[in-house]
Design a protein around this nucleic acid. Structure first.
Lengths: 357, 357
DNA sequence: TTGTATGCGTTATCAC
DNA sequence: GTGATAACGCATACAA
């Protein structure tokens, strides 16, 4: 798409006369014949200030192109209005969509997103954390799963984790002070149960689970829930195929499964992108029909899943709902740090399209 | 994919004893028996400080979990080490890849990405700019095309734009003070010329250009270059089909082109995602073969383009190269604001896959 | 090489 | 409701 047209810089060079362009509160105060404090109050809705005076100050501020300096403000308020996001792979469809939604929601609440790129292998670079710490984000969202909250908490002062847990809250009771923290419970089993039922309804007996990254908690729980759902329906445990959430790995793994391994009646992928890889391997290299010969189910329901070439039947996680819940938790904890731990719950459901039938 | 596992917050509540956890330069100084300034110097490689002393300070800083406060630092240095990015749609494959690469490259240079979401209709919200201004980013990258650099420059003090221009540098000579600014010249015509030649070689006579957003400069230039390349080869001008870079619009537009309009021998899409929409419409709804009945060419070469369902022949813009050039320009201008304007050039080339043949 | 004094732009505290 | 003053945490100029 190649959309962006230009970049703008702030050289702050000597030639540019700082003080004429960038107005300060003092200048606004002088111009409006009020104290510097009055200007500060004018920009703080809660502060008491005569309405007429506030209006005049705001008007003059606009004329002088004045904006309060967040850095200076944060120095004294101890609030940066920055939310750090640590992401290993911004390009991934699900993650980029989540970044998008989170940024939109947080921006509406007055927070800006501070984006950091983590190593591709999901290892948490201590340097990165130190670097980020310098910016003092009010909150941090980590898109990685192989780091224990306690590790991050140790690096970031006063960090209070929000656990994202899956399906079975009790399972996580053993975690250190688990119940002390806020939690987002994702009921993956809801959609997974529907998917397994649908597959069985179409005569599927052997399901292969195309796994995601092994460190991923979401992945191991998906696998567990699929196995459970199948057992409840009297089916044999799924064949587990190693994967890492990427298209290319899914493609090759599917090839191996059907050429070297014993194949399957259906492939349940740990995410949609993996499902795409499986579908393409089945159709374009193995010469099999989807859903005729093999059924495929994905997980996430990213926008690409409705593209006609795939038209994927998948377990949907409602992104908007998920982000709303997360932002609710963040803001709650930010505003009332001492409130009792809260648990938000998120359901999933099967979206039936064309890869099962 | 649903990867992230938890969030960490900084409540900064009263109960948390700020001063014990968050070490300050003074505390490190006291602990190391040096002055506060020495600590500052220890963290600034250029400052002169006895090596042994620096090591000791750094060691103690590590023990105390001390990191310099960027906000306080920026207050005096006038440098925030923040690069603002204004993006209308983070989920778009090309843009998310570009954000990823830019963030990685800038992070290596000590800059953090400050992400802002613009309105979907690409209109530049003045509130957003004011909001962003408060954070004083050292540089701003805008992923929108319908805003004149001068507008943004007016909002942000001392903003010096970097124009991204296309194919024909002279064409932009008329812009206000165009030659005063740094520029990235993208030679779209290179890859476009190759694509048109290939299409003609396979007997294509009528090409439809599936346009992108009309405000997009890249789009209008692509259209112009395709028309030019076709004229040079004695071909009739392309049929112009309206689009907006999205899959759904491309899908419907292709349907209209072949059902209501007169069809075409080939569809040249303004981006890869649009090409996917065209391919799916042709194959799955119009019952046509690609490349048998209709050839399709895209633009960008996003990762999805090699997915077997599409296997798209496309004009590649080297993302890494593009980002390197941009970062080079940014850093150059940041370090030496008064240097002479620079122009970086970027070529494009055709990647031949399976949708032409 | 090192330390002292000053200032960056803002808000919180306390008077009035 | 309003204004003076003191922080916030750091880097810079200058003096030693």
């Amino acid at each position: 798409m190649n959309t962006f047209s230009f970049l703008a810089l702030f050289p702050m060079s000597e030639r540019s006369e700082k003080r004429t362009m960038r107005a300060t509160a003092d200048q606004v105060a002088r111009e409006a014949n009020v104290s510097r404090v009055a200007v500060s109050r004018a920009f703080n809705p809660n502060a008491s200030l005569k309405q007429e005076k506030r209006d005049r100050i705001l008007q003059i501020a606009r004329e002088l192109n004045y904006t309060p300096d967040m850095a200076a403000r944060s120095l004294v308020t101890r609030r940066t209005h920055l939310v750090g996001m640590i992401v290993p792979d911004v390009c991934s469809p699900w993650e980029s969509a989540e970044i998008d939604a989170l940024t939109t929601a947080l921006q509406a609440e007055g927070f800006a997103t501070l984006l950091f790129k983590a190593k591709a292998d999901f290892s948490m670079d201590p340097t990165l954390l130190t670097y980020m710490r310098g910016f003092n984000p009010d909150s941090v969202i980590a898109f990685t799963e192989n780091i224990e909250p306690d590790v991050l908490s140790g690096f970031l002062d006063h960090a209070v984790p929000i656990y994202v847990i899956y399906d079975d809250a009790e399972q996580f009771a053993g975690k250190p002070s688990a119940s002390l923290y806020d939690r987002l419970l994702v009921r993956q089993s809801d959609g997974i149960g529907q998917a397994v039922a649908l597959l069985q309804g179409y005569g599927v007996r052997r399901i292969a689970y195309l796994a995601g990254k092994t460190q991923s908690l979401a992945n191991t729980e998906r696998q567990r829930m699929i196995t459970k759902a199948m057992a409840e329906r009297g089916m044999e445990p799924p064949v587990i195929v190693a994967g890492d959430y990427t298209y290319d790995t899914a493609y090759r793994a599917t090839l191996d499964l059907f050429r070297i391994g014993e194949g399957a009646d259906a492939v349940f992928a740990s995410n949609d992108v993996g499902a795409f890889g499986a579908i393409d391997a089945l159709r374009h290299e193995l010469g099999l029909s989807v859903p005729g010969d093999v059924k495929v189910v994905g997980f996430d329901d990213i926008p690409q899943s409705h593209w006609k070439s795939y038209n994927l039947t998948t377990v949907r996680i409602d992104l908007e709902e998920r982000v709303r819940a997360l932002v609710r938790l963040i803001l709650m904890r930010l505003k009332t740090p001492d409130a009792a731990p809260l648990t938000e719950t998120l359901s999933t459901r099967l979206v039936v399209r064309g890869t099962v039938g």
